[in-house]
Design a protein around this nucleic acid. Structure first.
Lengths: 204, 204
DNA sequence: ACCTGAACACCGTTCAAGT
DNA sequence: ACCTGAACACCGTTCAAGT
């Protein structure tokens, strides 16, 4: 059989379609049309029939959930590399981690929204909580270190972490919604908000 | 004509279907199946044909956007009545407002998610920002008062407001996602997080 | 002026059938 | 073992037609 030059039909039975589907979906997430793409469109782009994905995912929700889980891993990566070699003070590292968190959301709007959508919440169940906590592991470490060094206020780690997480999470989503109106403010409200967070966490 | 006892077909041509549709949709929002109900289902429950809503709303997105706008008004109401007769200290009122905010989200999960969904963002456009800021007017007042009284740190209002908003917004959504795991913590993380916020805003 | 019914294009999902 | 094609039930939206 000669090569087909019609379309880009990759060799059907050889590559793992599963990975191709995930990568295609990730590409579509990156196009910022939101995460409400259609499963049929994913199949179309992947060059397979619309029924093919069902051999690798029980349903659309499961694919979305998997994308979200990968997203949490990517977020952890981003935070880890941002904080880097922990040569900084706890206070500085907290600011770096917080900034990197918001940056991740702003860089991947559709993915970030998907990660915290109610749909994924339902499809991923308990796994989501674990994965999310995993992404925040470096934050937990940071808070523990800061408290030990006596530069952060003494609080239950998870509570202090919740406060930090809520701040960056809320900031990220407000930014994605275009609700931070930076044009109405001197400095960028994100930086300001993070310094307010710092004042709540760190001891003067 | 005698009364019809088949179904609850309200008098077609007399009542404003527009209001009926909105109320029906609000009821469905309250049932916490998320805000992804179908327009046809709304029409069904309202007792009209599935084409009828299009005489009152250009499309589904516009209905959702209107529900969201109403939601922001309801949020403003909640905050206003919670803070009440402003007989408290600025510090206390901030805590009250923040708590009421999170409570509103927890009480109306689907509505709150809808209000901050990307879809509504697109359909409501600029109106959303205005409406949202309107809901937070009392917070702005509070911060201004606190700063004038010298009990809050001196910051640009909108930046300080952004920090507060992000905190309660993030806290609300994390709570809705079941991500605050109160069972793993002594006190409720929401209270703890709000007190961390307070420490970032108020002067010791 | 307001609503209905049929129609269109599109989905998610299933399943017998192909290679 | 993996994929296809037709089929089903369902949507959002439109539009000529009804009262």
């Amino acid at each position: 059989m000669p090569e087909k030059k019609s379309k880009d039909r990759a060799p059907y039975h050889h590559g793992d379609l599963r990975r191709v589907i995930i990568e295609t979906a990730q590409t579509m997430l990156g196009e910022d049309q939101g995460w409400h793409f259609t499963l049929r469109e994913v199949a179309r782009r992947a060059g397979v029939s619309h029924a093919a994905p069902y051999k690798h995912f029980p349903d659309k929700a499961c694919l979305l959930a998997e994308l979200a889980m990968i997203g949490f891993d990517q977020l952890r990566e981003s935070l880890t590399t941002a904080v880097g070699e922990r040569s900084q003070s706890a206070r500085n590292e907290l600011l770096i981690a917080a900034t990197a968190y918001v940056q991740f959301g702003v860089d991947h709007p559709s993915l970030y929204r998907l990660m915290f959508s109610a749909e994924v919440n339902q499809a991923a169940g308990v796994h989501k909580g674990e994965r999310a906590l995993g992404a925040l592991a470096i934050l937990l470490d940071l808070l523990e270190r800061g408290q030990k060094e006596g530069v952060f206020r003494q609080r239950p780690f998870l509570s202090q972490a919740a406060a930090c997480w809520a701040q960056v999470h809320g900031l990220t989503l407000l930014a994605l919604d275009g609700l931070l109106i930076p044009e109405k403010v001197g400095a960028t409200p994100i930086e300001d908000a993070l310094s307010t967070l710092l004042e709540g966490v760190a001891i003067p």
